[in-house]
Every structure is written in structure tokens, then in C-alpha cells.
Design a protein around this nucleic acid. Structure first.
Lengths: 151, 151
DNA sequence: GCTATTTAGTTTCATTTGAAACTAATTACA
DNA sequence: TGTAATTAGTTTCAAATGAAACTAAATAGC
């Protein structure tokens, strides 16, 4: 394969290819969550993090989801409205609120997470285990190569 | 490395990782084009395609950039305003207009394309040639794994 | 030839997104 | 202590995005 070193071809330009593929995957995943559970990707990410542990502050969610604080703020508000999470004030620091899955939220998490893993499996179906490992490693490296705010 | 087969961890969930990394890369590239040339990513993609050949219809640009026709329509209009491209009516088919780089557009292309390759090189700096080839192959496979509209 | 369908491209409108400003609380430190 | 700086989180406003409706031209099928 030509390593695109001196001539520019958009179809082989990696930032372009990465963006196209990622958007394709995101749209696929987003439509599954939206159709089946009425969730947006930011909402789903918040639920996924909360499902992994007990609770998080919004700041914790920002760090763990890599979304910006506006996106997290909105996703949490929407999830509160849907009664999937609750906000719990912290006595010792009035700026903080812990976010925690409600019973309904936990049930939803239990229902979605197998689907998510299944979607991932379908997506990675054509890749060997080696390629999946390679991809993780490559994404790590790319993340570290981008100046400024890293993954 | 754990292959994430039965438990869900967002930080290892590939659709998520792909999206985060791709957005990071896109933001990095977008800010370079915007700061130095006042171009958006869609505008840049149109110029990149036109720089590879002589001219294209908007439909051709849609197919080659994988952007939707609204995005292409807007990018072309903006580039016409900036006098970087011209629209040329087609005598034999009144629906079509060919889009072609102006002299200024060509000059800009000549200036940007080395920068683009340079940004790509910086980004891929930590990857071996083998890994770069792997990444291309993996993106191909992922694109084909997504149901419906493929890359 | 004449109507129906398809195709190219644009416009409209509603939603999403993100930067910047803002509020409220905490911490630093003179 | 009291003021300045920092931190958590929300709101506001403007720009980007995308689906759907629309215009105009070409093609298909009768």
C-alpha cells in the first residue's frame, strides 16, 4: 500500500478516513440507541459510566466521557427529566452534585449494555483479535499525537 | 489486552474510542485550516477533490467527499463567494453545474496540500508503516461492517 | 408528444453544538 | 478575616447540521 507521503489524495488522507468511518459508526450506534431506547449518545455515555460504578459528579462525568461540561450538563438534565438518574447534593461542598442511576436507570443499563456489546461485536466482526488489539493501540497513539487536549 | 467481550467498559468500547479520537483529530485539523486559511473542513474537502482533477459536478463531490448534498451545496456556495471556485453551466444538461478551482483556488490548493500532508505526518508520527497500513485496512473493514450506507 | 418519475441542487426550518458569559460556592493567601 | 482567584455547573446566543420540502430540468413509459 502506498503510504501517501508526497501526494495528497483525499480518499487516502487519514484524518478524512478516520472522520468518515467514525461518523458512519456513530450514526449506526446512535440510531440503535435512539430507536430502541430513546437515548442520545451523550445520554448513553453518562449512563454507561454510571453503570460501571456507583455515582459520579458532573466533573467526573466530564473527565470520564471526554465530553465537554455543557454536553454533560445537558445530558444529565435530560436524564433527570426521564427519571433515569437522580442528582444528590453534597453536604460538604455546595458546588457539587453526585449523579446516580435510579432503579429505572439501572434496569435500562442492564438492558442496553448487552445490546451495546452486541453492536460492537457486529462492527468488529470482520476484524481478527489481533486487528482489534492493533486498533486499540493505534487509537491510543493517535490520541497522544494530537497536540493540546489529549484523549 | 482484554477484548471487551462480556463486560462493558466505556473507555474500551470501540465506537466510543473511535469517536473520541476522530473528533480530537478533526478539531486539530479544522483549527489548522481555519486559522491559516479561513477554510472549514467541508470547504477544504471540496478543494482537495478539485485539486486532484479538473472539475466535478456537485453530485461528483458528494460521492467523492462522502458528505451530504446540503453540505456540498453550502461549501461550494461559500467557495464561490471567496472566489476560490467557479460554477460552469453544462450546455447539455441544465441541472448540472461543473465546479472548478479558480486561479486563486489552485494557488491555495498548492499551498495547503503540503501542510495537510505535514499535519498527517505529525499525527502518524508515532505509528510504524505497518501500523499505518493496518489502520487503513481496519478502517476499510469497519466501513464495510456498518449496515446501510457504506463508506 | 404527454404525463409520471427521477435526478441535481437549493432553501427552509428545527435541532444540535460549543464558546463565552454567568452564578454560586470554595479555596488561597495577604 | 476579607478579598482575589479558582472551581462546578448552567444559561445564553450564535453557528453548524440535517431532514424534509422545494425548484427546475431530464428521462421513462405509454
Amino acid at each position: 500500500m502506498k503510504l501517501n507521503s508526497s501526494t495528497l489524495k483525499l480518499s487516502e488522507f487519514l484524518p478524512y478516513r478516520l472522520s468518515i468511518t467514525s461518523n458512519l459508526v456513530s450514526r449506526y450506534i446512535a440510531s440503535a440507541y435512539s430507536e430502541r431506547f430513546g437515548l442520545t449518545i451523550p445520554q448513553w455515555r453518562v449512563i454507561a459510566i454510571l453503570g460501571e460504578g456507583i455515582e459520579q459528579t458532573s466533573k467526573g462525568l466530564v473527565d470520564l466521557t471526554k465530553m465537554d461540561k455543557v454536553a454533560v450538563s445537558r445530558a444529565v438534565s435530560q436524564l433527570v427529566t426521564k427519571k433515569l438518574v437522580r442528582r444528590i447534593a453534597v453536604q460538604t461542598d455546595g458546588r457539587l452534585a453526585l449523579v446516580r442511576l435510579s432503579k429505572q436507570g439501572k434496569d435500562l443499563y442492564e438492558e442496553i449494555s448487552p445490546l451495546a456489546l452486541d453492536l460492537e461485536r457486529k462492527l468488529l466482526d470482520q476484524l481478527s483479535d489481533q486487528e482489534i488489539q492493533d486498533l486499540h493501540k493505534i487509537l491510543d497513539k493517535l490520541g497522544h499525537s494530537v497536540p493540546e487536549i489529549q484523549v
